[in-house]
Amino acid sequence: MTPVSAVRPYLTLLVARCRQETQYRAAALFGMATQLFWGLVRIAIFTAFLKAGANRSSMSLPQTVTYIWLVQGMIRVMPWSVDADIRNLVREGTVVYELLRPIDLYASWYMRAFARHAIPTVMRAIPLFAAAVLLFHMQMPRTVTDGALFVVAVVLALLLAAAMSTLISISLLFTLSGDGIQRILPAIANFASGLLIPLSFLPTTLRHILRVLPFCDLIDTPARLYIGQLGALEAVAAFAQTVIWTAALALLGRFLVLRASKRMVVHGG
């Protein structure tokens, strides 16, 4: 088999999932209205805090406002929810058909997860950023380099998020309901990614710990590149860290799939 024909089924799968995700355009539009509302509320809160102690801030007000809009636009990067289709496959036992297919289970689930994060992110982020730049004081990147680094970081963030999301799907093979990891992982991810509060605002020690964990690369790293808080060298280091974490999580996922397929008990007929 040539390398191209080996990869083709996965690419076809990716394209099909992407097409499916683009069907939800009305949902994306309503979602954008919700994100705009949240953004305005959060900007009011952060503005009031910054006014109380501007000298203690590590980010200027325009930078903070821009950071908040970036968070609102990239919210669908977050690995929050279990893929409902996969949960049904596992509950109904039809997941065995997935194993029978002559393709790699991990790779096909990873492609699904990537499409499930990438398409809604693109569909929501672009109109939201346009509205925020035109109407709500979001800044453009200062240089073309910052903008380009931001785009690279978002792509890496999506690859990392897909690895996390696939791990959650795989955990279903062990726990069926996925209630535990499905609830606890997102709670930690919300805090550690910069979604709730820009990591630069946290106390130093905590910030250093969170910047080693993989979650910060989902939102905080792309956002800091956009607002120009990271130099070229730091950017390369951050990218390397993202790639290493993504590879580690993917390896863990593959290992777990292997374990699961050996000990799998199928419920129902």
């Binding site: 009031a48 509060i197 605002f201 946290l202 905590l206």
Partner: peptide
Amino acid sequence: LEFAAIAALFYRFGSIH
């Protein structure tokens, strides 16, 4: 953790309005 984020903001900025 949502409240922890609020507490962190107070730790840095002191007060709000």
